[in-house]
């Protein structure tokens, strides 16, 4: 049985991105198998599933990171609304895609530059030159990522001098600075303490007024706390998709139930 992948029309929500029959291959190895999924505009969708099921692979399709490897191959499409461009089409410039979609990775990956330059990076790539505007956005993004208090006096230090958790918040600030339409986060809080985690979660619920969010998390409670919709993947396939309340109280599929309740699958 194919999993339901579309948002219930009763919800009357706009779709920000529609993934249709997306398959992905690392050379001969298939990592995603015909995944279809809608991301509701200005809502948070959580993507959960066991290690190795393809969550990061799925996220990387959204900003064409796989293009860096010639042997990788996509099938299907990812339509970004409202203009319906197919993100993974060869005809679409990956740079344009990356301008509209912010991404935070599983492991913090700051550039070997100053804290300021890291956050300002996305704006400069977009050709923003107004110094005052850039400073304002950098401060705003650092505040949003709850990193401002710790870095305001050392913006010119190398980002590499930050702790792991601080680096992760820096990467969140970097993704936020250009005000993306879609924000993808791959386990953004796995290296953070409970307070920083709560701050990021709070930030996500504030951000969703402006941006559509897809978050990968291994923490079931986090998915239950922050998301409006939850998608569960297993071995490269989408098993279940639905509103988070339903998925966490009465999931339809036994596989989902076993996973979220910590049972042997």
């Amino acid at each position: 049985m194919a999993a339901i992948s579309h948002i219930d029309p009763k919800e009357a929500l706009a779709v920000k991105a529609r993934v249709e029959q997306l398959s992905f291959y690392y050379g001969d190895a298939q990592a995603l198998n015909r995944v279809s999924l809608d991301l509701a505009e200005r809502r948070i969708t959580a993507l959960i599933g066991a290690s190795g099921c393809g969550k990061s692979t799925f996220l990387r399709c959204f900003n064409r990171l796989h293009d860096l490897y010639p042997e990788s191959r996509y099938e299907g499409q990812i339509l970004l609304k409202p203009d319906d461009i197919n993100i993974i089409s060869k005809a679409v410039d990956p740079l344009e895609v990356r301008l509209r979609i912010g991404m935070v990775f599983q492991k913090p990956n700051p550039f070997p530059k100053t804290i300021f330059e890291n956050v300002a990076y996305g704006l400069k790539v977009r050709g923003v030159r107004d110094r005052h505007f850039i400073e304002e956005r950098v401060e705003g993004a650092l505040r949003q990522a709850s990193l401002w208090a710790e870095t305001r006096d050392r913006l010119q230090d190398s980002a590499m001098t930050l702790s792991g958790g601080q680096q992760q918040r820096l990467c969140i600030a970097r993704a936020l600075a250009p005000q993306p339409e879609l924000l993808l986060l791959d386990e953004p809080t796995s290296a953070l303490d409970p307070i920083a985690t709560a701050n990021i979660e709070e930030l996500l619920s504030e951000l969703k007024e402006q941006v559509t969010i897809l978050i990968v998390t291994h923490n079931m409670q986090q998915a239950a706390r922050v998301s409006d919709f939850t998608a569960f993947m297993h071995l490269g396939e989408l098993v279940e998709f639905g509103d988070t309340d339903t998925v966490f109280t009465t999931p339809r599929q036994k596989k989902t139930e076993d996973y979220i309740t910590g049972r042997y699958g």
């Binding site: 409670q221 239950a224 966490f248 109280t249 139930e257 979220i260 309740t261």
Partner: peptide, 8 residues
């Protein structure tokens, strides 16, 4: 923090 059938 039980979920699904455990929560029920």
């Amino acid at each position: 923090q039980p979920a699904a059938s455990d929560l029920r």
